[in-house]
Simulated assay, not measured.
Amino acid sequence: MKLNWKPGTMIYPLPAVLISCGNKPEEYNLLTVSWVGTICTNPPMCYISVRPERHSYPVIRDNMEFVINLTTKDMAFATDWCGVRSGKDHRKFEEMGLTPGTSTIVKAPYIEESPLCIECKVREIIGLGSHDMFISDVVNVLADERFIDKETGAFNMEKANLLVYSHGHYHELGNEIGKFGWSVQKKNKKT
Rank of each mutant, 00 (worst) to 15 (best):
N4W: 07
W5Q: 09
W5G: 03
K6A: 09
P7D: 08
P7G: 02
M10C: 04
L14F: 03
V17S: 05
L18A: 06
I19A: 04
I19H: 08
S20I: 01
C21K: 02
G22D: 06
K24A: 08
P25V: 08
L31C: 14
L31E: 05
S34E: 13
V36A: 13
T38M: 11
T38S: 14
I39T: 11
P44I: 12
Y47D: 03
V50I: 15
V59F: 06
N63Y: 12
M64F: 05
I68Y: 11
N69I: 01
L70G: 04
T71L: 11
T72M: 07
D74E: 15
D74H: 12
M75S: 07
M75V: 07
A78C: 08
T79K: 08
D80T: 04
D80C: 04
C82F: 08
V84S: 10
V84L: 13
V84D: 01
D89H: 14
D89M: 12
R91E: 14
K92R: 11
F93L: 00
E95R: 10
M96R: 10
G97C: 07
T99M: 02
P100G: 02
G101E: 00
T102S: 07
T104S: 13
T104C: 06
A108R: 00
I111Y: 12
E112T: 03
S114K: 10
E119A: 02
V122K: 02
G127K: 15
S130Q: 09
M133R: 11
F134D: 09
F134L: 06
I135K: 14
V138P: 04
V141I: 15
A143N: 03
A143Q: 12
D144W: 10
R146W: 01
R146G: 00
K150R: 15
E151P: 05
F155D: 04
K159E: 11
A160V: 04
N161Y: 00
N161W: 00
N161V: 00
H167K: 12
Y170M: 01
E176F: 10
I177C: 00
K179Y: 07
Q185Y: 09
K186Y: 11
K186E: 15
K187W: 06
K187Q: 14
N188C: 03
N188R: 13
K189W: 11
